[in-house]
Amino acid sequence: MDHEPDDIRNPGEARNRARQRRKWAFLLFAGLVGAVIGALLSGLENGEGNFLVGQIETLTMPAWAAIAMAAAFFFAFAVLPVWGFTQIDDYQMRQNLIGYAGGCIAAVAGYPIWAVLAMGGLVPHPTAFGIFVIAFAATMLTFLAVKLRG
């Protein structure tokens, strides 16, 4: 094995590779969490409708399952991202925060814009799910734009 001499000569590159491995492990774990939530949701929901497109009025699930799913979403959308912030450097933190700011601005500005357009009969009335989609999509797009800009 010739890894050891390379690691001794380039300790920084070895640490950088380890950092990259941790990043991919985090992304893999986040993907796994998403897959588990999706599988649980499809197994626990009853009735008609589609959660993924916001048709939840006719969907039901047992109270214990609802609490468990709420905890799972809190872990996926709050705990995991906040923990992720502790694993990145200040440059990546800045990119992530700009992404979240983009999503927040889109939700705050998006609702009144959508509401007045609906009042004018131009679009359907705003929905909570629609605002969620706007915020989520804006977060991702802002983050990608910042990443591509370098």
């Binding site: 380039n10 300790p11 590159e13 590779r17 450097d89 440059y91």
Partner: peptide, 30 residues
């Protein structure tokens, strides 16, 4: 290399590149 310096500083290679190209000012700690 940028990766070598990034590892020594315990930051991402992208952070080193951004500092070198003037797109990002490092924190005081960095």
């Amino acid at each position: 290399s940028q990766a070598e310096l990034a590892g020594r500083l315990d930051v991402s290679r992208q952070a080193v590149n951004a500092i070198e190209t003037g797109k990002h000012d490092p924190s005081l700690g960095l």
